[in-house]
Design a protein around this nucleic acid. Structure first.
Length: 961
RNA sequence: GGGUGAUUAGCUCAGUGGUAGAGCGCUUCGUUCACAUCGAAGAUGUCGGCGGUUCGAAUCCGUCAUCACCCA
């Protein structure tokens, strides 16, 4: 049954994917024929996410490598899975609940988590199915999830190990607080956004009527010429609401204006707090007034200043970033009670922005507003919530990254782990060498709950101490483990667990009243940063902490392919955590790819509306076209700008391949060629030539893929299949297949069949669907293409026939020359014209004799005859070793022919001048490599020869005219 | 402010010292004989500017300009 005229991607892709899955084609070790393993860990997408262009790109590259290795017989595992995306998923579910008028706090943790799991069950498969549409050949039977029981065990184990080694600690620190989600987030989850804002200047009165002289006018050299007497300091701030937590004013120690004020005090307006003027280099004399208010509990820089200068940190906000003044002893401490009461009355409970307005209004009304300037500044925002982040003082868990960072740096320095492209190494080092402690606790419910339980403390003399400060933490992989420890610690028989601190205290009081020897512990309610679990991905998915066969076989993995945007989030953390936990690298090579942008180079974003949906593109052009486009554009280290016309072009490439096979089928190729046939040994030059070309492209593709040069591999295949097989070989084969010589026909069929099979094999990693379809449609096959043998030993050195290659190049050049002359002379395309052979060397004669049928057919030449001289009005065709002419008197325009020849002559002359110039330079001949000099000589000679022929032709033209 | 990268045909981009390339687009011609998602032919470049190294620079170095991204 003949093939259709084109490939129906939409109908075929699902069917083919199902066939692969049914055959278990992607299972770990499928098609393995050698000992070496090849393992890629998928960068886990969010479980409730959906496929975007970045995923499509990333997974296409992985699939190319995986299919390539699988066909080469490696024991291959592409490990798929998803992460639980703590904040993102909790956000989605909370939004769902809100529609039903529900709130997670009212539901309670357990009920809420049930809802999250239900949501995961419902939408978790979306991205898997989308990856399948793309053709991703993951071992889905091993699909992993960071919240799976086995993976949870790995996360908890990692936490406990780190804790016991002292690499994790809990502390009251300023963290990036997201007031929308009411959780801490890590530095990396913060986006810096430039916004238009204001800079307010406030006057803080000096204590006890103190005053100083502040310069207000300056001469040309900047020396002050006028001063005014001030009994206040002017501080500037972009965040007036934080002033309630001010505990100092900093000036530069060298600043002459304020030197005498250092150590004195100002009285904070509104609250009446007496706060010191401290010297700190953080205060920049050039900025504003050079005096800066310090709010250690609400600003990272101020926190540092506070630490250095011994200032208090007063938290004045709630977890929702509303003002917290009432019942806030820290706030009230040291302030006049009347002022505190008034502040509470005016400001308590106000949102931070309402409070800002209120404070500015107060300042204006009370006369301590010095002025307002327009100001553009950077405000940190939560990358998920998009609200302004509040630096916030809370108890959080941190990984002391300084303890585990060194092996991650060394591994890349020594080359044990390779990062490609090179430039991304710098980014990696830059971050790791300046690494900050990693805040890993999140005030969320969806995630891995921190395996730490708290109980009362113990005093030195063995009594139990219930004060909050004495709180004792127990860390263990289970409550049982912790309970055992607690029994020993307290010397009690019973240890109870409560999830909530309030319940625990109640329970404790109850036991005390019964004089029972029991202690109640409560578990830390927080969960771990999703990236803490993703950091364990390579070992966790393979079964760690158990010593599984998979872990032994596939770990360390081979390649990680990921976007540059998660080098810090993920790559660096896997490096640190895996070295810390198993003492081995997680992977050998990291290939970092760039961003997919729209065709104008803009980052794709929903708000810009320039998002290309990979699934829509797959619908329109087929997965193969989308994949091939991404591969062809994957030049290392460059962003890629995607346009649909490019995808359409590669869809056409698939059609081209399809029709080449269709041609073969229509010409009896598959009556002769057999599945698994050895490479034929044909006589005909064209057949021998294409075998050599096939060997060459195989080497090119392997070299390119080995170097992660996906674009080179894709382009080599494109140029081979379209530019050599379809444009030339199929055309050469037409006269051969039409020959009377049955043996010639048979060898041509065998050759074409073999070459096309190699095309399918080599293209399969890039275009798996259409190639698999053609593979199955042409012959009964022992194995599906997905498991076909990669022609690894096909070597150009062995297969290329230098004579055949030279001959075919000559034939192609001649045909191109004739076609070009015809087109420029406006010879009607359908017209068969005679050609005269004027002079020809031995090689040319042989090449002509062997390929006359090809030449006459492809150049539309009716006859070739020898002639002594070119007749009047003929067109000259010069080739290596000879020249021909097309006697076209009456058809051609002499002036046009002259113009054509002159143009070529001019081009050759220019080239020749350059070549001769170099050769006549003695320094060039002396210092350039021998082969370069030789090549230049040959080039010059060849040009000279051609030039002579064309000049002669020009002369004849002149004589004739 | 610090860092990284980019600047090559109309567009998107390859090109690590030896004759400037590809795809798309454009122009002309062409459909019985695999494919119009096609074929044939063609036009288009001070390789961002300036300096340097070299026999030789799109390529190496310096500098300036413009743009982009990352980090503060």
């Amino acid at each position: 049954m003949p093939l259709d005229k084109k490939f129906d991607a939409r109908a075929a892709e699902t069917r083919i994917y199902e066939a692969w899955e049914k055959a278990g084609a992607f299972r770990a070790g499928a098609n393995a024929s050698r000992d070496e393993t090849f393992c890629i860990m998928i960068p886990p997408p969010n479980v409730t996410g959906s496929l975007h262009m970045g995923h499509a790109f990333n997974n296409t590259l992985q699939d190319i490598l995986v299919r390539w290795h699988r066909m080469r017989g490696f024991d291959t595992l592409w490990q798929p899975g998803q992460d639980h995306a703590g904040i993102a998923t909790q956000m989605v579910v909370e939004r769902e609940l809100a529609k039903e008028g529900l709130d997670r706090r009212e539901m309670g943790r357990e009920k809420f988590l049930e809802r999250v799991w239900a949501w995961k069950e419902q939408s978790g498969g979306t991205i898997i199915n989308q990856l399948k549409r793309l053709g991703a050949s993951c071992d889905w039977s091993r699909n992993a999830f960071t919240m799976d029981e086995t993976f949870q065990r790995a996360v908890i184990r990692a936490f406990v190990e780190f804790y016991r080694k002292g690499w994790i600690y809990r502390g009251k620190r300023l963290v990036n607080w997201d007031p929308h989600f009411e959780t801490a987030i890590s530095d990396l989850e913060v986006e810096q956004v430039e916004v238009d804002g204001k800079m307010w200047r406030f006057r803080y009165p000096l204590e006890d009527g103190l005053s100083y002289r502040h310069p207000v006018a300056f001469d040309e050299e900047g020396n002050p010429t006028e001063w005014e007497e001030r009994d206040y300091l002017v501080v500037a701030t972009t965040r007036p609401e934080t002033m309630l937590g001010d505990t100092g004013v900093a000036v530069h120690p060298e600043d002459p204006r304020y030197r005498e004020l250092i150590g004195r005090h100002v009285i904070l307006p509104i609250v009446g707090r007496r706060i010191p003027i401290v010297a700190d280099e953080y205060a920049d004399p050039e900025k504003g007034t050079g005096a800066v208010k310090i709010t250690p509990a609400h600003d990272f820089n101020d926190w540092e200043v506070g630490q250095r200068c011994g200032l208090r940190a007063i938290n004045v906000m709630t977890t929702r970033a509303a003002m917290w003044l009432k019942d806030n002893p820290d706030f009230a401490e040291g302030c006049p009670p009347d002022d505190v009461a008034r502040a509470i009355q005016l400001l308590d409970g106000l949102d931070r922005y309402e409070a800002r307005d209120a404070i500015v209004t107060l300042a204006r009304d009370e006369g301590w507003l010095d002025g307002i300037d327009e100001d553009r500044h950077i405000v940190p925002h939560g990358d998920r919530s998009k609200v302004a982040i509040e630096p916030y003082l809370t108890d959080q868990w941190f990984v002391d990254t300084s303890k585990i960072v060194q092996p991650a740096i060394d591994a890349v320095k020594t080359g044990e782990v390779e990062i490609l492209p090179e430039q991304d190494k710098k980014v990696y080092f830059n971050w790791l060498e300046n690494i900050e402690p990693w805040c890993i606790s999140r005030q969320l419910w969806w995630g891995h709950q921190i395996p730490v339980w708290y109980g009362p403390g113990r005093t030195a003399d063995g009594r139990i101490d219930y004060s909050a400060r004495a709180e004792h933490a127990f860390c263990g992989e289970s409550f049982e483990e912790v309970a055992a420890e607690a029994r020993a610690f307290y010397g009690v028989d019973e240890v109870h667990e409560k999830t909530d601190i309030a319940d625990a205290i109640e329970d404790q009081l109850e036991s005390l009243s019964h004089d029972s020897r029991a202690i109640t512990l409560w578990r830390d309610p927080d969960v771990l940063d999703t990236w803490f679990s993703s950091g364990l991905w390579p070992i966790g998915t393979l079964g760690w902490p158990d010593d599984t066969p998979e872990l032994r076989r596939y770990y360390p993995t081979d390649v990680l392919i990921t976007g540059f945007d998660i080098i810090f989030f993920w790559v660096a953390r896997m490096m640190m955590m895996e070295y810390a936990l198993v003492g081995q690298k997680p992977f050998s090579t990291v290939y970092v790819h760039a961003l997919v942008r729209d065709e104008k180079g803009k980052k794709m974003s929903k708000s810009l509306g320039n998002v290309l949906d990979p699934l829509e593109l797959i619908e329109e052009f087929g997965a193969d076209a989308v994949r091939f486009t991404l591969a062809a554009m994957a030049a290392m280290g460059r962003d890629l700008k995607l346009s649909t016309s490019r995808i359409a072009g590669y869809r056409n490439f698939g059609t081209k391949l399809w029709n080449a096979v269709r041609f073969a089928e229509m010409n009896g190729v598959y009556e002769v060629h057999r599945d698994g046939a050895a490479m034929p040994e044909p006589r005909a030059t064209a057949n021998r030539w294409i075998l050599g070309e096939t060997a060459r492209v195989r080497e090119e593709v392997d070299a390119a893929l080995s170097a992660f040069r996906f674009n080179d591999a894709a382009n080599a295949l494109y140029a081979f299949v379209w530019g050599r097989v379809c444009d030339w070989y199929v055309e050469f084969a037409k006269p051969l297949l039409a020959s009377e010589d049955a043996e010639l026909v048979a060898e041509t069929r065998a050759t074409m069949g073999w070459v096309l099979d190699r095309c399918l094999v080599l293209l399969h990693p890039f275009m798996p669907f259409i190639t698999e379809e053609l593979w199955g449609a042409t012959l009964p096959r022992a194995k599906m293409l997905v498991h076909a043998d990669w022609p690894e030993t096909l070597s150009a050195a062995e297969v290329v026939d230098a004579k055949a290659e030279r001959e075919m190049r000559w034939v192609i050049a001649l045909i191109e020359e004739i076609r070009s002359a015809r087109a420029q002379m406006r010879v009607p395309a359908g017209l068969w014209i005679p050609m005269l052979e004027l002079e020809l060397d031995a090689h040319g004669r042989e090449a002509l004799a062997c390929n006359e049928a090809l030449i006459t057919r492809l150049a539309r030449i009716g006859s070739i005859e020898e002639a002594e001289a070119a007749p009047k009005g003929s067109v000259t065709v010069a080739v290596e070793g000879g020249s021909f002419c097309l006697p076209l008197e009456g058809i051609i325009d002499v002036a046009a022919e002259r113009a054509r020849l002159e143009k070529t002559v001019a081009k050759l002359e220019k080239e020749l001048a350059g070549l001769k110039g170099r050769l006549s330079n003695p320094k060039f001949v002396e210092s350039a490599p021998e082969e370069v000099v030789e090549e230049t000589r040959e080039n010059a000679a060849a040009r000279e020869e051609e030039l002579a022929k064309l000049r002669a032709a020009l002369e004849r033209l002149t004589e004739a005219a």
